[in-house]
Simulated scan of single mutants.
Amino acid sequence: MKEMQRFAKVYQQQMNWEINEENYEKSRASLLNNYMLLTTEVAEVAEELRKGFNITNKNIQNGMNDEEAFRIAKEVIKQDLGKEFADCLAYICKIANFFEVDLEESFYSKMEEVKNRENKDIRLQKR
């Protein structure tokens, strides 16, 4: 993740896509714009999932069993889904870099926090 953040920082500088640091108002506007772009990319992940579910349901309606139908749908959307995840990661890295947040360190720290939570969701075991 550290390498991805370093790459993103250099890439965004080369493309002239950095968050504006000229003053508070420009930084604020730039951050809000990038956040809006991130949420747009997250919505595009949802669209790919929707496409996959529609492919699955169509194949089930045509007589295919649900597991096979879903396997095929996952293959169909895999590449485009990966592109949308990459877009999301690019915006996350950009915002994290602006605030000098180490995403790798933050990720592992947060996962440890979640693991040790008192109010974890309870999942029923399959019988």
Results as ranks from 00 to 15, higher is better:
residue 88 C to H: 09
residue 96 A to C: 08
residue 104 E to C: 08
residue 112 E to T: 05
residue 64 M to R: 03
residue 51 K to E: 11
residue 62 N to I: 10
residue 53 F to E: 06
residue 57 N to S: 02
residue 87 D to E: 03
residue 40 T to H: 13
residue 70 F to N: 10
residue 105 E to F: 13
residue 96 A to L: 07
residue 107 F to D: 05
residue 109 S to F: 10
residue 56 T to L: 03
residue 90 A to R: 03
residue 66 D to V: 07
residue 108 Y to R: 11
residue 51 K to F: 09
residue 105 E to R: 03
residue 48 E to I: 11
residue 39 T to G: 12
residue 99 F to Q: 10
residue 82 G to T: 07
residue 78 K to Y: 01
residue 114 V to F: 15
residue 88 C to W: 09
residue 100 E to L: 14
residue 83 K to H: 12
residue 38 L to F: 11
residue 93 C to D: 15
residue 32 L to H: 14
residue 32 L to V: 09
residue 43 A to C: 13
residue 76 V to Y: 12
residue 73 A to H: 01
residue 56 T to N: 04
residue 49 L to V: 15
residue 66 D to F: 13
residue 102 D to R: 07
residue 35 Y to L: 14
residue 33 N to M: 07
residue 40 T to L: 06
residue 38 L to E: 06
residue 50 R to H: 04
residue 50 R to V: 02
residue 100 E to V: 08
residue 56 T to D: 01
residue 63 G to Q: 14
residue 59 N to H: 04
residue 43 A to W: 15
residue 82 G to V: 01
residue 72 I to D: 09
residue 39 T to W: 04
residue 55 I to V: 10
residue 69 A to M: 14
residue 45 V to N: 02
residue 71 R to I: 08
residue 32 L to F: 11
residue 95 I to S: 07
residue 76 V to T: 11
residue 101 V to C: 07
residue 94 K to T: 09
residue 64 M to P: 00
residue 95 I to H: 08
residue 35 Y to P: 00
residue 40 T to W: 07
residue 103 L to E: 10
residue 34 N to I: 01
residue 98 F to G: 03
residue 113 E to Q: 03
residue 82 G to L: 11
residue 81 L to Y: 15
residue 48 E to W: 12
residue 31 L to T: 06
residue 73 A to S: 07
residue 36 M to K: 08
residue 35 Y to N: 12
residue 72 I to N: 10
residue 93 C to V: 01
residue 45 V to Y: 12
residue 91 Y to M: 09
residue 79 Q to L: 14
residue 85 F to A: 15
residue 32 L to D: 15
residue 107 F to S: 05
residue 39 T to R: 06
residue 108 Y to D: 15
residue 76 V to Q: 05
residue 106 S to G: 08
residue 102 D to W: 00
residue 64 M to A: 14
residue 59 N to C: 02
residue 72 I to K: 05
residue 52 G to W: 00
residue 114 V to Y: 10
residue 36 M to E: 05
residue 81 L to W: 13
residue 74 K to Q: 09
residue 82 G to W: 00
residue 55 I to G: 14
residue 101 V to N: 05
residue 66 D to S: 09
residue 104 E to T: 13
residue 38 L to A: 07
residue 92 I to D: 02
residue 57 N to V: 15
residue 85 F to P: 01
residue 49 L to S: 02
residue 84 E to W: 12
residue 35 Y to D: 12
residue 113 E to K: 12
residue 92 I to L: 15
residue 83 K to S: 08
residue 35 Y to R: 08
residue 31 L to C: 11
